[in-house]
Amino acid sequence: MSDRDRQGAPRQAPGWQPSNWQAPLELEPVRPGPGANEATPQTEPTGDDAGKFANLSLSHWNWTVPGFIGGVLALILVALAFDASDLLSRAFASSYAFGAAVAGLVALVVIAALKLAVDEVISVRRLRRIDALRDEANQLLAADGHGAAGAFATTVSRFYRDRTDIAPTIETLNASINDAHNDREIITLIDRQVLAPIDQSAYNSVLRASRDTAIATALSPSAALDVVIVLWRNLKLVREVATLYGAKPGRFGSWRLMRRMLGNLAVAGVAEGLSHVAVDALGGSIAAAISTKLGQGMVNGLLTARVGVATMVLCRPVAFTAENRPGLRRIRTELLNVPKEVL
């Protein structure tokens, strides 16, 4: 059959990419190979070593600082171990029961420390995976091809597999994708169906946090307290937002994230300089001009908002597009209501 069908094949047709031209033909109705037919391909291309992807924030890996910190930490650990063994032997010497109690305490400390460490490692890995996902999405969008994004959709669904709140949207996503969608369309679907609802909740978190900071710092009596409030609320916000996107940061991880994000306010495209923040806040409201305290509150609120939005940008597995990039406009109008509420 295929012989007859191939009769019309050209030998050298100009402009027809002769090397890969293929005449129409009918194949045996065998099982099709693994193809682009459903959004359930098996491979998961991004493993945990995905950190090797170009990263939009982690600066060049330099061994000196981590080497120094790691060395110091290791030394402290060794010292602690010696101390602990010393402590244990002395406790056992005094009485068996006392020794057992101390041993239990030491075990608790060690296990808790291990758990913390493991959590941190997991959280760092998840952040790296998000970076890798975003890179992959960008590559797929740039290539504008067909057939590769099904695997990406699977990776994203797997990334969110233990999130019961996202499960319905993932289900909708899997039902929506069919073999005719090209890569760009599939990524758009992921963006709209899975990530847009998360964006919504994240934005609400940011809104709440920025109002909180604005009001609290406007009312707080001392500048030192301001700093504490801002730091604490921002850290909490970063954790909230990162958790919403599935980054699950640990305590230490949130710090890292926050540091990384502060360093990236510019990259994230939200910061137009702090002076701008002040102009935003002061220019909009006479009340703010009257009360410096109020003004400070609003600056802090806006700063928090920026931190929150930057976290959204950093934690999103698919980069925001020009259309859905979260803006500060709503937050700004919200903040302008703060003076009325406080006064």
Partner: peptide
């Protein structure tokens, strides 16, 4: 149902080559 390769659409303006 059957599986078939329906042929491809060229991405250039030369739609009907002479010798096919």
């Amino acid at each position: 149902p059957t599986v078939l390769f329906p042929g491809s659409i060229p991405d250039g303006p030369d739609l009907f080559p002479e010798d096919v």
